[in-house]
Amino acid sequence: MRNQIIRPLFLLILPLLMLSGCVTTWTRVEQGQNQQLDTNRSFSVVIPTQWVRLTNTMNNISVTRDGTMLQWIEVKRRNKEKPFASLDKALPSQPLVTELAEYYLADTKKQAANIHIEQLDLQPVSIAEQTGFRMTLKLVNSRGLEVHMITYGVWVEGWFYQLSYQAPKLYYFERDLPAFEQIVGTFTLRP
């Protein structure tokens, strides 16, 4: 009798629990709340008012203005042990910034194996008083949509920090690029 009640109840609750993990929570950034921290409180950035932040993500700040398909900015600190998980290799303790860029590109390409990815530009930059890289990539999906992506990457005390922006080349990329560069300018590592 007890089983007859518990089993259907369990079967009802289980899919709901599973689905709850898939639900994304978006919060609009209001005036005065522009400075945003990641869940580990390891870094902060200033997000423009009225942009929307995805709030149930770990160790990263993910924001958009009109939807992630139109523009998507992600600032994150990667896993310390395996920052480039798909490469399955140990990194040097202090990789050169050019090497760091090569590992990042390899990891990105490996994760999107069926998409054509082309490196358009790579330049050294200073982020949070450290030397990092700024890489521009072109991605083309199977429908022919060209998406451009800019990533700032920097290695600080064994952690890889990444600030990425991607948007369709048509209209959105150029339009929201200044907002991204502004966010990059506010990137601050916290003690």
């Binding site: 069926n114 054509h116 429908r143 022919g144």
Partner: peptide
């Protein structure tokens, strides 16, 4: 067509 559009 998908391969062609995707520049593959």
């Amino acid at each position: 067509t998908a391969l062609r559009r995707g520049e593959m």
